[in-house]
């Protein structure tokens, strides 16, 4: 095993193909700073429509930061400064006249740790539809809750206890509840930040199956630490290293013929 001094490697260009045939979202020359510290260096990539894009890389490489830029979750951090071009269906999502509330209704997010609201299962799922006024009456709302739970593969497990608190579910169920909650708003893109990192293999398998089904309707970007997971669920993979996008391409290409030395080292488990 070779000991690699990763800092000495030149990382000026991204290798592979960052472009998608039908891009739902395009990011060009993104730089992100936390105060004076630069977290993302000149990243450009496309998220292909109705496909899963996996963002992989060692801890602290900026994957999550990058993901949170895509629905402007970083707006809540005062010291965070973002430059570059972020477009959703060719619309600038950082445009001054664009309300982040509207953006987040279109770009949903599932977090690393399951974070259901301390409310009932029903209210958890209904919350998004309620605040956006997506339904006109109770029957419609019931319908949204049921279909969302079904899509998340949770309905059969909780249909008899929709009034119970969402926090009383198991970890895997909670994460599926969070996915159902996100789906209920009918977003176009779902961002997932290590959605299975806190789950056991069985719950992980259920979530992965779910992601596979969800891509029929939604464009998905998923941050993951598990190479196997990236290989199983994604069509495109982007490898991040120290805030830079090192390599991007079709998942099978990345995992079988990585072009960059760093990517190869990472996916073969030599470091990271």
């Amino acid at each position: 095993m070779k000991n690699l001094d990763i800092k000495q490697v030149e990382l000026t260009e991204t290798v592979g193909n960052i472009y998608a045939d039908s891009a739902k979202m395009s990011i060009r020359n993104a730089d992100v700073y936390y105060g004076s510290k630069q977290a993302i260096h000149n990243v450009s990539l496309d998220l292909a429509k109705n496909q899963v894009t996996a963002l992989i890389g060692p801890s602290g490489c900026g994957k999550s930061t990058f993901l949170r830029c895509l629905n402007r979750m970083n707006d809540t951090i005062d010291i965070c400064n973002i430059t570059g071009e972020f477009t959703l269906d060719n619309q600038d999502i950082y445009a001054k006249n664009l309300d982040p509330v509207l953006l987040r209704a279109r770009v949903g997010m599932v977090f690393q740790k399951p974070n259901p609201f301390p409310k009932s299962i029903y209210d958890n799922v209904a919350y998004g539809a309620r605040i956006h006024g997506l339904t006109n009456n109770k029957a419609e709302l019931d319908e949204v809750v049921e279909t969302s739970l079904q899509k998340a593969g949770l309905f059969n497990e909780v249909k008899d206890r929709l009034k119970d608190p969402g926090t009383g579910l198991s970890g895997g169920q909670q994460q599926r509840l969070c996915i159902a909650r996100t789906i209920a708003v009918s977003p176009e893109i779902i961002l997932m930040d290590e959605p299975a990192s806190a789950l056991d293999p069985i719950a992980t398998a259920i979530i992965e199956e779910l992601i596979d089904e969800l891509k029929e309707k939604y464009t998905i970007a998923i941050v993951t630490h598990s190479m196997q997971q990236a290989a199983r669920v994604s069509q495109h993979t982007a490898y991040f290293h120290l805030g830079k996008l090192v390599e991007m391409g079709k998942t099978e290409d990345i995992f079988t013929h990585p072009k960059h030395k760093l990517t190869e080292n990472y996916i073969t488990g030599r470091f990271g």
Binding site: M73, G108, G128, I131
Partner: peptide, 12 residues
């Protein structure tokens, strides 16, 4: 995490 969850759903 509760704030982020709600913000992520598009709550103002």
């Amino acid at each position: 995490s509760i704030r982020e969850a709600a913000l992520g759903l598009g709550a103002s």
